[in-house]
Amino acid sequence: MGKGLVAGIIGAVIGTLLTIYTVFNVLPDSFLRQGSTEEPTKQTLVGTTAKEETVYKAVAKKAMPSVVGITTVTVQQDFFFGDTEQSGVGTGVIVDSRGYILTNAHVISSGQAKNVTVLFYDGTKEEAQVLWYDSLIDLAVIKVEKQDLDVAELGDSDGVEVGDIAIAIGNPLGLEFERSVTQGIISGLNRSIDINQYETMENLIQTDASINPGNSGGPLLDSQGKVIGINTAKIQTAEGLGFAIPIDLAKPIVKQFIEKGRFEKVVLGIQGVNVARYEQASGEDLPAETGVYVLETVSGSAAAKAGIKAGDVIIKIGKADIKSMGNLVRELYKLSPGDETTVTVDRSGKAVELNVKL
Rank of each mutant, 00 (worst) to 15 (best):
K234I: 14
L32Y: 09
V89C: 12
Y293H: 10
V13C: 08
R98D: 11
F263L: 10
K3V: 10
V130D: 03
T200Q: 07
T117S: 12
Y100P: 08
K114E: 14
T48H: 10
D138H: 07
T41A: 15
A7M: 12
G35H: 05
S282M: 09
K265D: 08
T41S: 12
T290E: 15
K260Q: 14
I169T: 04
S336E: 13
G318I: 08
V73N: 06
T341F: 15
G218A: 03
S223N: 07
Q147M: 05
G111Q: 01
E85Y: 10
E279C: 02
D29K: 14
K226N: 11
R262S: 15
G92K: 04
E289N: 14
K316M: 01
K143I: 03
D138N: 10
N215Y: 12
A168E: 02
D156W: 04
G338R: 07
V273G: 03
T37L: 09
A140K: 01
E85F: 11
G318R: 07
V162M: 05
R98S: 15
D312H: 11
A244K: 02
A105Y: 00
A60F: 05
Y198R: 06
L204K: 05
V356Q: 05
A276I: 03
V95R: 01
L173S: 08
S36M: 07
I108C: 03
V73P: 02
D339Y: 09
R262N: 14
D134F: 04
F31Q: 11
N104H: 05
S282C: 12
K51E: 13
S192H: 11
K234L: 15
L173W: 08
T19C: 09
I308M: 09
N215M: 09
D312S: 11
G170N: 00
K226C: 04
V181E: 00
Q183P: 01
I228P: 00
Q197Y: 04
A302E: 07
E202G: 03
K125Y: 05
D29Y: 09
K251R: 10
P287I: 13
G291R: 00
L332A: 03
V116L: 02
L295S: 07
